[in-house]
Each structure stands twice: as C-alpha cells, then as structure tokens.
Design a binder for these strands. Structure first.
Lengths: 226, 226, 226, 226
DNA sequence: AATGAATGAGCGTTCATTCAT
DNA sequence: TATGAATGAACGCTCATTCAT
C-alpha cells in the first residue's frame, strides 16, 4: 500500500500558494490567515531577494503590518524560519507524492515522466531560488539539513519503486544508490539550467540526455563487490 | 596548444592556502601580505560559519586587527567579497587546469580520472561549504553568477576534449551539452555526498556509477534534431 | 483609645497570603478572586526576580492567563503596581498593629519584644526583597514615598507608646525622634543581615545589641535645646 | 601601617566628579575622556531618574552622542553598568579612606566625627538616590551584592579601629558586630532622613542621638556567651 | 470575564562605513 | 599602514496599551 503516508499527509494539510500548512481543527480564524500571509510574504522575499534579505521588518512591511504584530504571531525569527521551512518543504513533499501514480505504464516511461516533472520544477523560479538557499543553510544548521534530506528521501520514493521494478535482481542498497545518483544528478542542473541560469534554454536537451542516461544506467548497472 | 590560457594564468598568479592572488610586479610588500591574510581569514570564516557570519568585524578579529585597518585595505565589504570570490575561483581554476594532462591514455580512462578528482574535491570541507554559498549568492548577484559560471566553463574544458576525442562525429553543441550534463551531475552530489553529508560514506559507489554512466552516455549519445 | 484605627482597618480588609485587600461589600465574585490572583503572582515575581522583571506579560504568564485579560482587570501597569503596593503595605500595617498588645508587661520588655519581631520580619525573604525595591521606587515616585512613610509611621506607633511610658518627661518631638531613630536603625539591618545577606547568621547578636542599645538610649536620652 | 591599601588605591585612581577611574598609563586620550563622560552621564541619570531610566539611548542622548558610539566604548550595557558601579563604589571607598586620620584625638571624638561625616554624606542627593538602587540590585545580582558589601567592609575599617581602641578587652567578633550594627544603623537613616526625605530636617537630631547611643553602646557592651 | 490581534515606542546590539590621527 | 572614534541604519525583540470579539 504505497503512498499511504503521503495521502494521510495530504488530508492533514492545506496547500495555499506554494506553502502547506498543518490543518488544525477549528475554523479559518483571522490569526491563521495572518500567519499564512506572513509566511507567504516571507517566501516571496526569500525567492526574490534571498535569505539574507528576509528580515522581520521587511516581512512585516510586505504584509503591511507592524513589526510588533509580526512578533505576536511569530515570537522569534527562528520560529518563523522553521515554520516557513516546514511549510515549503511539506508543499514539495505533497507535490512529489502526487507524481507518477501511473498504473499499467512501463517503468521506463514512468522514469522519463518523473524526471521530466522534476526538471520542469527545477526550472521554476521558486525552486531555483529556494534550494540553493536551503543547501547553504543546511551546511550550518542541522535542522535544515535534516528536513531537506528528509524531503529528498521522500522524493526518491517513486524512483526506488521504478528501479526495483526494472531491476528486481538488485539488492536494496544498490537500488538506493541508483536512486540517489539519479536524483542528485538532476538537482545539479539547478545551478546551470534553472530559472534564468545561462543554460536554461537547453534544459530540454539535458532532459533527454538525463532520461536516456538514467534508463541505460538502471538497465546496465552491476554493483561491485564491496 | 591547449591549456595555454591556464598556463598563462598560472604564471600570473600565486596560490597561497586555497587562494590565488594576481602576481603583481614589485616586491612582496607588507600590504600585500596583509591583504592575503585578510582574505584567508575571510575564507576560513566562510567555510566554517557561512556567508552570513562573514562580517567585517569578525574578519578583522580573526586577523587580530582593528576594523579600521581592514577597511583601509578593503574600503567596502563588497570589495572584499569580490576579491575573495576572485581568489577562490581562480584557485579552483588553477586546480582544474592541472587536471588530466595525461598523454597516451585512452579517453575513457582520462574521463574516469577526471571525474574521480572532481568528486574527491567535492568531498572536501572547503568545496562542500563554499559552493552552496556561491550558488545562493549567484541567484541575486550577477557578478557572482558570471564568475561562477566562468569557473564551470573552465572546468568543462578537459571534458570537452575527452568527449570530442571519444565522439569526433558529434557537433560542438552536443559535445557541450554532454559536458555540461556530466559536470552538473557531479555538482549535484555536493548536497548529498559532500563533506559531512548523510551519504558521504557512499561517495565511492556514486563515483563508480557516475563514471560508468558517463562513459556509456558519451559512447551512445545521439542528439535529436532540434 | 489606641489601636482603634488599626482595628477598624482589620475589619475592613481581608488578608490573603501576604496581601491585604479591601473587603468590599458583595459576594466573593470571580473577578475579585482573579484580581487577587494577579496581585499575588505579581508579588511572587517582585520578590523572586525584582521590580524590573515584574512585567505585565510575566504576571499574566504566571497566572496562566492571557495578557488581554490582565489588562481587563488592571487597565494600566500603574494601576496594578499601585494596588499591589497598597495591598502589600496594608498587610504590613495589619501585621504591625497586631504587635505588642501586652498588658501589664514592663515597657522595656515590650520594647525588646517588638524589636525582636521586627528583626525577625526583616530576615524573611519577602521583607528583605520588597523593601529595597520600595526604597528605590520612592526616590522617584511620590506616591510610593508617601505610602511607605505612612507605613513606617504606623510601625512607629507602638514604639511611641512604649517610649512615652518609659520617659513621661520627654516632649512629643523627642519621643518621635527616638522612635524614628530606633525604627530606622533596625531597617538598616535589612541590607546586612536580611535574607541571604552576608551577616544574616549574626542577626541574633545584632538583636541583642539593638535592644540593649535602644533601652539605654531611651533611658538616658536628653534632648538638646534647639 | 593602616590605610596602606587605601593610599595605594588613591594613587592608582583618579577621581572625577563623583567617579573614580583606574589611572591607566598613557596620556589622557580622547577615548578615556569620552568613557568618563559616558559614565558621568549615566551617573547623573541614575541619580535623577533611577536605574530603570538609565538606558543606553538616554545615556547617549545625555552625552550628545549617537548610540553607536556609546556601544563602541561600552559594547554591552552590562559592561557599562559594571564599570559605573566600580567607579561609583571606588569613589566612595576613597572618600571613606580619607576619613578620620585624626592623631591624638580621643576615640569618642573620632567616632563622633566619623558618624557626622557619614550622616552628612547620607543626606546628599547622590548617596540617597544611589544606595537604595544598589540595595535593590544586590538582591538579584551577586556581583552588585559583593561589591557593595566590600564597600561597606571598607567603610567599617575606621570604626573597627576606634572600637578596638575604646574596648581593648573585646574579642574581634564582638568588635565587628558592633561596627556592623553602628554602620547599618546609620544606613537605615537614608530612607527617613536622606535627601528630600520627610525627616531630613531632623537629621541633626538623629546625629546627636546616634553618636550618644553608639558611644554608650561601645562603652557598655558585654557580649553574651554564644 | 476573557481572548486574539494589533500598535507604537523603545530596548540592547550589530553592522558597514567614514574619517581624523 | 594602522588605530581610534564616531555615525546612521538596521537588526531581533520586549513592552504597555488598545480594542474588537
């Protein structure tokens, strides 16, 4: 029964404009709306101006709100950052979980489909801008590191299934090695062919290359004895 | 006569502890040594604590120097950052240019060798820490973007030659596509298998996977009509 | 008819855990209980952390109550502080009024008894902590100054009687001078031998010294012509 | 050789307008003058408006100086407060050490003289205002407590000598008990007869009472067996 | 009677920068 | 070259207070 966790998750969260919020009981109160507005404003600043520019004052100003009120909803900056990270990452998780539920389609095609969707996402402004910030942050913040790696683990889920289907002979470790390599290989394209990056116009070529390369790799991979 | 630019570069710079400085005429004055000391201290902070922590004050303190003196050598923070970036990037360029001057070795072996060296570098603390910062910065700073992409272009130099040797039938654009994909694919591993990253212990496996995958890719690639 | 004011006072207030509240007609409503809870929480913070730490937020938190509700009961901080001061001071007044109603006991013994009780009180945490705050506040707040001096005036009441009994020859001003000196002399011990002060262990000695000294003083005092 | 420590101290400090500063080698630099100006302004605010009002911004404003410059000289508020406390307390210590070097004067007269000087000081605005703040602070700040008690210990020095001279038969502990009682007895007058306190006009009477009382006490005191 | 939401002022602190010495 | 001194802007945060619900 795959994806059950994902579906559970979906039913427990609400996604609003690129952010996923835990769906608490009780009506859609004013406070909740304000919190979401704040997190959304923070996200917009993060994407458009970067993490350094994402100050409490700037977020408050973007919400047309006084600083004091912002700290009423998020007592410390860390609270806000953590909650934003959670909402951003959860939104990606939901997005990934929605991928590739294609029954009766050959695994190669599903692999191609999934890679296409991921590379499409990488080319969006939001993804191109946010992930490098997360990578940089995760170098000095264990919380961010863990949460981001958890996201990627989730994103590798569909890949694992496809690879297992293509190569039932492989042991679990090798399947995971392949999935990680494939996933990481695509992530690398963020820097070169992401939004407004110099090689963005050739992303369609890299997509072809990637898919061909990944299919061949999975088909032909023979792990060495360790 | 390949590498001539690199060799020119080498003769025009001096590399000191991970940084490359333009070798100006005139003696090794005290001022120059101080500047290098400052940039080195900045680099250490950048690596160990991140870009945000790399403030003028902290750099000055690390140099056991007063803030006023630091601003004498680097009037603005931007001067310092730009010069640091230049020195860091140039040092990487020199490093890359020193790669793969193996005459009489089959191109597949040279490709394997070069990938091995790059992935080894990715696993170093310095590279794992610096590049995500550069990627994040380059999203909001054209200067950084250009300089980093220039670095990568240089790093792709040896790949281009090898691919051309393996596939003389391919047009230039396709060769460049392949080189970029291969290079970017390895960069992606920074986040997963770089220094102190969760999959660092399996880097040797990804290295094998990468090399096998890249060789196959170059061997078999057929560009589509665009 | 001495003490009449005090006894009147006693019947008009209710003392709850170190605080005295005016006993208004009408039932013991919820609102009244809440106000007392608030003042008590404020007192606890005042004693344990000092006046500066006694913020509205902290008091509300100590009452497990929201800030909004606290300001419902005490619209401004000054209201709360004044009322707390009143309750604290009145409780002391009631305590003092209960002192020394010893009929048929020699005045010297009553003086000794009263000084013993006062110095015992000075050694309590509450008194050691509160009074220096009141003294500091009274330097810049006339209301506090007046209320505290009123308290001390009341506390001198029993002393005045005893001194008058011991020295019926003295004029009123001299009796008051002596009472004030004796009272103030004991107050000074707060700083040296109060709760957790360095000379607290020797308070019993100072008590002996004080009593001996005060008895001798009252016995022998001859006012100068002014 | 009594007072040697005091005299050493005097030669190592410089007293400027109620504050004593350690006399560092080197000229009277601008920075030193600025620091003294800051501490002096802080003292004035402390005296006139109280500890709570003594904020960094207000001090800076009183110096006609920008906040940033204040934090250049005193990086944290605690630095400033500690240094102010030190300067204030040291100035009092120097003042006390200058007391009562009367050779060939009967000890009773010296006791009277010393008490007169102390009570005179207590009536000054500065002393009346500062000490209650210190007492309140010392309830929650060990550093302040220790420093203030150290000051009082120094202030008791002359008393100890006089008492010893008057009562060579007493053991050291009893002498110290008497000195502490006498000192604390006078401190208590701060609240009643200090600057602008309601009984300030009668301070001269309390002085007479105090002296008579203290002389009698020292003359007649017989410690109990403990 | 109590809570939620928001404001405005102020807090101590950090920052890059300027400039006189 | 280097330090000392000062500025102005911004930072995250706390505070008492107000007011609608």
């Amino acid at each position: 029964m795959p994806h059950s966790r994902a579906e559970t998750l979906k039913f427990k969260t609400i996604t609003v404009a690129d952010l996923a919020f835990p769906l608490r009981e009780g009506g859609y109160s004013k406070g909740r709306r304000t919190r979401e507005q704040i997190l959304h404003a923070a996200l917009v600043i993060l994407v458009s101006e970067g993490y350094i520019a994402m100050t409490m004052r700037r977020i408050a100003a973007a919400c047309d709100m006084k600083l004091g009120n912002l700290t009423y909803h998020f007592p410390t900056r860390e609270d806000l950052v953590r909650e934003l990270l959670e909402a951003v990452v959860t939104a990606y998780e939901i997005e990934f979980d929605n991928l590739a539920h294609m029954e009766g389609v050959p695994p190669e095609d599903r692999l191609a489909e999934i890679c296409g969707l991921i590379l499409e996402d990488i080319r969006t402004k939001k993804t191109t801008r946010i992930f490098p910030e997360l990578w940089a942050l995760s170098n000095h913040d264990k919380f961010v590191l863990d949460r981001v790696q958890e996201l990627y683990a989730r994103a590798r889920g569909p890949l694992l299934e496809i690879i297992k289907e293509m190569r039932p002979d492989l042991d679990k470790a090798s399947i995971e090695d392949l999935a990680l390599f494939i996933s990481s290989s695509m992530e690398g394209l963020t820097i070169f062919a992401g939004h407004e990056k110099p090689f963005e116009p050739r992303m369609h070529v890299y997509e072809k290359i990637a898919i061909q390369s990944f299919v061949d790799l999975v088909r032909s991979y023979t792990p060495e004895d360790e």
